[in-house]
């Protein structure tokens, strides 16, 4: 096998892992701070992709259209998340986890129908902007420009999240609230708004993931299911609520997917799941420290 082809494939896997990371980072953030396992997270990713399609199409699928979509789609998803949180979820925090799973599962079904209603069942696509189209040769490896772009955005989001959690007041309060929300309230902080902000930020990341994936795939109903399963697995192997865990988990998942394609094409789909099983056998609570 041509080694440079292998490396190219790995880089592409790593790039896909960046999208997985962005989505799972949002999921794990909500899980860590609010203790809500948001099953509808994948639906918000799907909505992000469809909204990106609508915006890009409004601009005639031009380069500018892509950039607008990339910025606006997460904001639209954030708005949807705010409505969900204020209208419904904020009344349910006291309930046990099973209730929350059932609630967000119901939400997933509703959002799915909503998407079907608005965008229909056809496949949609977004054209990547010109400067990210095609491939470049770097150090002798052939790699799609869009993959390079993803490899740039992923770490950017990781750093952004680190900054948010460690350097901003909201982030510090969110970290405190994730362990002891009652005590945070005692300090005069309205935890309810902190939770709303955390939920909106987490969901906006799903929207960003959806917008980023849009040019690389056909946007369709059902993409919510694949991503929610993958990102829950990633969050679990990374350690619940741990952003860096989500990063490591995503890389493990994305790269093992590429390796599977390369070496065991007939088991390609199952390969990353086998990796998950092995990780969990060795470290049942995840690779990094779980917030739970």
């Amino acid at each position: 096998m041509d080694p440079s082809a292998v490396i190219s494939l790995l880089l592409v896997g790593l790039a896909r892992a960046m999208i997985l990371f962005i989505v799972s980072a949002g999921l794990t953030f909500v899980l860590g701070v609010l203790r809500v396992p948001n099953v509808a997270h994948g639906s918000l990713y799907m909505i992000g992709a469809f909204v990106a399609f609508t915006i890009a199409t409004a601009f005639g699928q031009s380069s500018a259209g892509f950039w607008f979509a990339l910025i606006l789609a997460p904001l639209v998803v954030a708005a949807v998340a705010l409505i969900i949180e204020r209208g419904l979820l904020s009344h349910l925090y006291q309930r046990e986890h099973l209730m929350l799973i059932l609630f967000t599962f119901g939400l997933m079904l509703i959002l799915n129908d909503l998407v079907k209603l608005i965008w229909g069942a056809e496949y949609r696509s977004v054209t990547p902007p010109e400067i990210l189209d095609g491939a470049v040769t770097l150090f002798g490896f052939n790699i799609p420009r869009y993959s390079l772009f993803l490899l740039f955005v992923g770490p950017l989001v990781a750093v952004g999240l680190w900054f948010l959690s460690n350097k901003t007041r909201l982030g510090k309060i969110a970290r405190a609230a994730s362990v002891d929300r009652e005590m945070v309230g005692v300090l005069g902080i309205n935890v309810s708004w902190v939770f709303a902000a955390a939920f909106v930020i987490g969901c906006a990341l799903a929207g960003l993931g959806g917008a980023l994936v849009a040019p690389t795939t056909s946007i369709s109903l059902g993409m919510d299911l694949t991503i929610i399963i993958e990102s829950f697995l990633i969050v679990i192997i990374g350690g619940l609520g741990n952003t860096w865990g989500a990063l490591i988990g995503s890389i493990l998942f994305g790269v093992s997917q590429s390796l599977g394609l390369l070496f065991f094409p007939q088991f390609a789909i199952a390969f990353p799941y086998a990796v998950v099983v092995i990780v969990l056998l060795l470290r049942p609570r995840g690779l990094l420290r779980s917030a739970w």
């Binding site: 970290r175 362990v179 002891d180 005590m183 309230g185 005692v186 005069g188 902080i189 935890v191």
Partner: peptide
Amino acid sequence: PPYLLARRGIAYVPDDRRIFADL
């Protein structure tokens, strides 16, 4: 709610401290 009582000027130091260990 407690956060508003805190803003009115009440503070509570619990017996088990409840320090935010990660901060």
